[in-house]
Amino acid sequence: MKRILVLSLAFALTLSLLAGCSALKPQERPQGRQQGAGAQPPAAAKTYSDGTYTAASDADDHGYALATVTIKDDKITAVQLKEVTEKAVDKDFNTYPYAPSKEANAEMAERFVEKNSVDVDDYTKATHSSQKYKQAVRRALEKAKVTPAVMTAYFDGTFMGRSKAGEHGYAIALVTIKGDKVTDVKLNEVTEKNEFKDYTKYPYKKSVEAHDQLPAKFVESNGRPVDAFTGATQSTEAFNEAVASAMEQAKVK
């Protein structure tokens, strides 16, 4: 009889405990066991930081492209493209005679946004411009990356810079960089008549010597300003400014 009573009390106590657990509100239950249908998965890590980023393509004898890319929530929301001529001035598509080049400028920007990618087709009959645009956009996207793929301070490539214009014109520099080292520098000047200076015929000897000797000095200084060339102080200042502008174009961040 006593054994039956003990078993009955134990059974009643077990039922009471089970009922109490089932009556717990969801927030009172141990957190490790909650599996609500509305639980949100962790947010995916972002590839790009929101913002607007500008980058240049490589420069050559025809100039270079510049891309300004706006990113929001890992989406390319806007792209502005332009080309800069071999004389380091913006190309005016309102007067530019080659129609496909003008069309590519508008169409390529739309393609980058629509596809949310740099991997778009070149514009027919404007392949060279298209490839420059793609390189510039790719570099702008690299600048935007949360985790960068390029670990150097400068992009590898050839970059154009120019000095401010004075009464006698301005200077242009083409600076080639590899692994954060300046490997080549080409210098030129555009006269007040908007013509490249012809050093083979230029009468002022010191200016010609500066043009010939300063590139090696810029390579040696790794793109930093060099001392004024005796007898060609103004030219040296202009070249220093142009090289600094090219180095700025090459920066990853």
Rank of each mutant, 00 (worst) to 15 (best):
F218Y: 15
K91R: 14
L13H: 00
A140L: 02
P148L: 11
K72M: 11
Y53T: 08
L66N: 11
V182C: 02
F11D: 00
D156Y: 10
A104N: 09
F112M: 11
V118M: 06
F196Q: 01
K193Y: 06
S49Q: 12
L15C: 06
V208I: 07
K102F: 02
D61W: 09
K132E: 05
A37W: 00
D74E: 12
Q80F: 05
V84I: 15
Q27S: 15
K205N: 10
F229D: 04
A216I: 03
A165D: 09
T47V: 14
A104L: 03
A153E: 15
Y199V: 13
A19C: 07
R162W: 02
K75R: 10
P42T: 05
A171M: 08
P203V: 05
K197S: 01
V150M: 10
R139Q: 06
F11H: 01
V69F: 03
D119K: 09
P100R: 10
T127N: 08
T124L: 05
T176N: 00
Y154E: 05
A228W: 01
Y48C: 02
E28C: 02
A136H: 04
A88I: 04
Y199S: 06
A106L: 10
R29K: 15
A144H: 07
A88P: 04
D156A: 05
S235P: 03
R224S: 14
A210P: 03
T152E: 13
V113I: 14
T158F: 11
P100D: 08
T233Q: 04
T68L: 07
A23C: 10
A23M: 13
K217F: 07
F218D: 04
K164D: 15
S16M: 15
A106D: 12
T14C: 12
E114N: 10
A250T: 06
G36K: 13
L17F: 14
V146A: 09
K217S: 09
Q131G: 08
A44I: 02
T47W: 00
G161A: 11
T68N: 07
A210R: 04
Y53S: 09
Q234W: 09
T54G: 00
A171S: 11
E192K: 11
L187K: 08
T200L: 08
S129G: 11
V84C: 07
K193F: 01
D60C: 03
A232C: 05
K72S: 13
T147A: 15
A37Y: 00
L18H: 04
A244V: 01
E241T: 13
